[in-house]
Design a protein around this nucleic acid. Sequence first.
DNA 1: ATGAAAATGGGTCGAGCGGCCTATGTCGAA
DNA 2: TTCGACATAGGCCGCTCGACCCATTTTCAT
Lengths: 209, 209
Amino acid sequence: MAVRVVLADDHRLLLEGLAQALNGIPDIDVVATAEDGDQLQEMVSEHGPDVILVDVEMPKTTGIAALGAMEDGPPAIMVTMHADAEHRAKALAVGAVGFMSKSTPLPALAAAIRAAAAGKSLMGDDVDAILDDHREPVFADGAAALTAREKELLAMLASGVSSTDELADKLFISQKTVKNHLASIYEKLGITDRAQAAVEAIRLGLHRK
Amino acid sequence: MAVRVVLADDHRLLLEGLAQALNGIPDIDVVATAEDGDQLQEMVSEHGPDVILVDVEMPKTTGIAALGAMEDGPPAIMVTMHADAEHRAKALAVGAVGFMSKSTPLPALAAAIRAAAAGKSLMGDDVDAILDDHREPVFADGAAALTAREKELLAMLASGVSSTDELADKLFISQKTVKNHLASIYEKLGITDRAQAAVEAIRLGLHRK
DNA sequence: ATGAAAATGGGTCGAGCGGCCTATGTCGAA
DNA sequence: TTCGACATAGGCCGCTCGACCCATTTTCAT
């Protein structure tokens, strides 16, 4: 049922943190992690994951090289700190189905993983949109990208205030502005509706007053 | 901003448990509690709450009597273990704006408190509907009233699966059945949409697989 | 002082959601 | 064995939500 994932990254903090975070998502299972391209190939043949998530920059065999060596492997999503055109081109050239910046919010990454597992690919506009939105921010925090007003709105959502009407009243703004804020929240967090926004708000600790 | 509430009930367990639970709701503040009608009148004049929540059956001055003695007090919601017609009639006679069974789910009670604070009253059909639905169950748990299938659905909601489509797929049922389950969840928890359902699901600990 | 980001607001439109009613089959308890 | 609760499913309708377009004003850092 759950999507089985293998992670590869040479930064252990990121590797373990991300594994932890992804395992916190019910329908995603991190079955193994690797610290370089060689280990990655081992883990993939040993565990046969549905999706692999690979850092572009890795010691020994790089992510690019490892992917190139694995013909007929599971769909791969490339992750990188440098979301520039050259890296992307190389990643796509070796068969990656997706390409995400390390500053991508977790839900967006989760969405990409599910999409990859389902055989879809995050090419073209999808990737470009994601890259455009998350090229700058240094933190992969998610909440860090939200403005003060957006956090306020999310906090209300997380306390059970869900209708546009009520939100507008309690924030002293028009219903249209509520919808605008929600739209930009959806985009930043990689989600699509209020129910998911409520879940994220609580996960990010935005509830409690 | 938050609604200030005074609770009165002679059962300390219920009194303290309910106070705890209500304080867990961001926009509700329990400012004082009382164990009988006399204490209630003291606390009300001392704290000037927005709403009072009173047990019908209390030693010394009963809830009914205490309310009768307080002309021009804040709006009162009567709570009782015996949700029968006679008690309700008496409660309404002394000016209660609402009348809830002790087996009412917490969100429904919270909704009633907000409504009372806003000057609305939970008369007529609203109260009757609530009484009809919660006359039997002994626990005021909320989650206890949910069926296994409903909890499953809520758990998925709490993990970010929000669309009817996805929910139907993952539960192997039709979209219509998903909507039916959601409708009965809304009714049981006193909520109106998926965003609130997600919040409640997490609050009830229904997430984590 | 200039420009970017944030907060505010408007309109349109289609798809999805929630309310309400009915119906069927399967349980288990009275 | 009858009644009720639960899970399943369909239809209908009105309204809300989210997507995509836009504009204005303020604030703040450069």
